[in-house]
Structures are given as C-alpha cells and as structure tokens.
Design a protein around this nucleic acid. Sequence first.
DNA 1: AATTATATCAAACATACGTTTAAAACAACA
DNA 2: TGTTGTTTTAAACGTATGTTTGATATAATT
Lengths: 203, 203
Amino acid sequence: MNAAGSLFAEKGYRATTIREICDRAQANQAAINYYFRDKEQLYVDCVREASQSCMARAPMPSHLEALAPAEQLRQFIAAFLQRVAVDHDPAWHSQLLMREMQWPTEACREFVEVHVKPTFHLLQGILDRLLPPHTPQPKRMLIGFSIVGQILHYRSARPVLMMLVGPQVFDALDVATLTEHIASFSLAAIRSCVEESQRKEVP
Amino acid sequence: MNAAGSLFAEKGYRATTIREICDRAQANQAAINYYFRDKEQLYVDCVREASQSCMARAPMPSHLEALAPAEQLRQFIAAFLQRVAVDHDPAWHSQLLMREMQWPTEACREFVEVHVKPTFHLLQGILDRLLPPHTPQPKRMLIGFSIVGQILHYRSARPVLMMLVGPQVFDALDVATLTEHIASFSLAAIRSCVEESQRKEVP
DNA sequence: AATTATATCAAACATACGTTTAAAACAACA
DNA sequence: TGTTGTTTTAAACGTATGTTTGATATAATT
C-alpha cells in the first residue's frame, strides 16, 4: 500500500501501473486483485489512509478556548502548514490528498466531508472571535479563503515556486517562518477590517 | 487541437486517448500522427497555445507607471484573477496551465520562464514601491507569495471550494468582488509592515 | 496426519492504446 | 488530361495494462 500510494501520488492514477506497484512492493501482480478488489479500490483505500494519517499526525489544536483569538489563529496556521507544507514520511500522504483536492475522483467527497469542512469551520470560529460581531458572513468567508489560500500555496504551487526562486531558497522556508509571516500578514489585514467597521460604527 | 486541449485539461495526459480526441474532433486517428508527430507533441503544442492565448487575453496592465502604487497592486490583482479565476472560452486554456503548474511535465519550464517569472517580477516591482526601501528581500518574496496564493486559490482549490460552500455561493463570486477583497486585505497587511518598520526606524 | 481454508505465484487472457501502413481521395499544376 | 504532391481513411500491428485462472505452497483446524 505504501508502494501504491507513493506511485499514485507521484504519477497519478492512470499513469501508475499495477506492475510497477507490485515491483516496488516485491509482491505478485495478482496480489492487488486478491487483497483489494481491483486497482480502483486500492486507490480509494490509499486516499482513505492518507487522509486519516495526515489528520492524525498533525491534529488541529484542541485547546484553543483558553488562548487569545490572535494566538488561536497563529496555532491554526501552524497546524495547517504542518499538515500541508511539510513532507512527513511517508511523503505521499499529503501529495495524494492534494491531487484529490485539485482533480477530485469519487474518493474526494468523503475527504471533504470528514476533514475539510470541519477544519474550515474551525477557522470560521476563530475568525468570529477576531472580527466584529456584525461582520457579514461573505466577508468572513473571503477572509477564510485568503488565509487558507496563502497556506495551500506552498503545497499546490510548490513545483513552480521551486523553479521561480530555486530549490535552496524554497527549502529554507520552514514552518515557523511561514507561520509567522502568514499570521502577521493576516492579522494585520483583519485588524484593519475591524478598524474600518469601527469607523463606520462611531462616526 | 481544441478537442485535444479540452480533454487533456479535463482528464490529464494519460487518461486521454487519441481515439477520444479524434472522435470529438471528427477526425481520423492517424491525423494526430500526421500533423503532430505523436501524442506527446500534440500535448506540448496544446500547452503552448494555452499559455500564449491566456496571456494575450488578459495581459498584465502596461500603463502602471502613472498610477499610485496601491492602485497598481489593485490592477495587478484584477488582471491576474481575470487570467486565472475566470473561465474564458475555451475554458481548457487556464485549466491545462494549472495542471502543468501543479504536476509539471517538460512543457512547464518554458511556461515558467516566459510567463510566470516576468509576472512575479512585475509584482515584486509593485511591492518595491509599496514597501519601505530597506525591506529585506525575503520579506518581499513572502508578501508576493501571500498575494499570489490568495489569487490562485480560487483556481486550484475550486472543486473543493465548490463542495465547501456550494456551487451557487461560489459562482456568485465575481472578479470585482474578489479583487476588492484581496487588494484591501493585502494592502492593509502591507501597510502594517510599513508602520512596523517605521516604529523601528524612528523610536 | 488428514483435511480444509488461505495465500502466493507464473502464466494466460482480453482489451485498450499509440503508432504505422498502404491504399484511396483530393488538389495543384504541366 | 496526366502527373505529382498532399491529405484522408480504414485496417492492422505491436505492445502495455488490468484482470483472471489454475496450480502450488503455506497455515489452520479437526
């Protein structure tokens, strides 16, 4: 399954052959049809494992309540970056999930329901505490997208970023640096939203 | 070529068969090997056409010099969103380019050199005018990533965003709305950078 | 130890795919 | 009109790929 997952993540479903998988796993070709019904079932099992393991490895912080909202956001960003931008081993977990998110197969719906939606709602909750109470919901959504967009960029555009600034510059970006930047960038923007609405409120 | 491009964009290189392409184009199978050497050459030609047309259709604003830096950034964001988030016809152009950027084939290097690098440098130039003169280069780079990340998110995470908020909410997001949000969000963040460095400078 | 279930394996199978071929249709030109 | 070069077409070719088969080995159970 590690063999399958890493190849699927590298080359995609169609470009990966079961012969390759079995070579890497040092198993017989028929093993796939014996243990997993067929190639497709093996694929969805890989996605499921990737999703479970990814979330288990870098869980969203559960003790947020006690912290100041700004610190909650910081921790959220750090945990999200940890999930998405860092290559844990096996590296294929997050790669495969990213593939699913960009060109979803059937395996994606479950992932979105179980993991993406709760994560986004967690972020929305944090933003609720950071923003004035009467902030319109669409605005909160856009701010959420802006934060998530900044984070995911380091995964989804990784190959291009490497070509753009060179691998050595890119690899020098660690989670702490990125967290600090994205958090301060976003908090500054959010603060200006608050001020803006206060100006309207108390003219 | 439209037939090929749209199928490549939809399903990827491997999952697209030349029989399908020729069906859609109402052409003979051998036509592909006759006009384009082979399937791969057809693919890189599609990418090249997509890249040229995409840039031609929504060129970066050329008259930036006359504008205030903040307005320059606004225009940049609008033009970038226009390129990336909007489905022009044919829709496969931007889709195919996005595919290339996320899982690059050989066709990607040229695209990055010819179009991505100049675009990013244009953004860096705008940021130069917005930021204090002694802002360290890494910081400028991170700010650039934050802006581009926000923009690209609406393309690269589109399927997930649709599942997340529903298609009707997502489709209601027009370029003007997104431009206004991303620009004000980013400008606020940038402004706080400036203030921060001024606090250091004049204590 | 004998029997049954489970797992492994090499080989074969059927189909899908990219490419080639060779003949036919068409166009340009003398 | 006959000749030449170009385009189109149907069929065939060789290979790659997912799956199945049937035999053999291994483990579990009685």
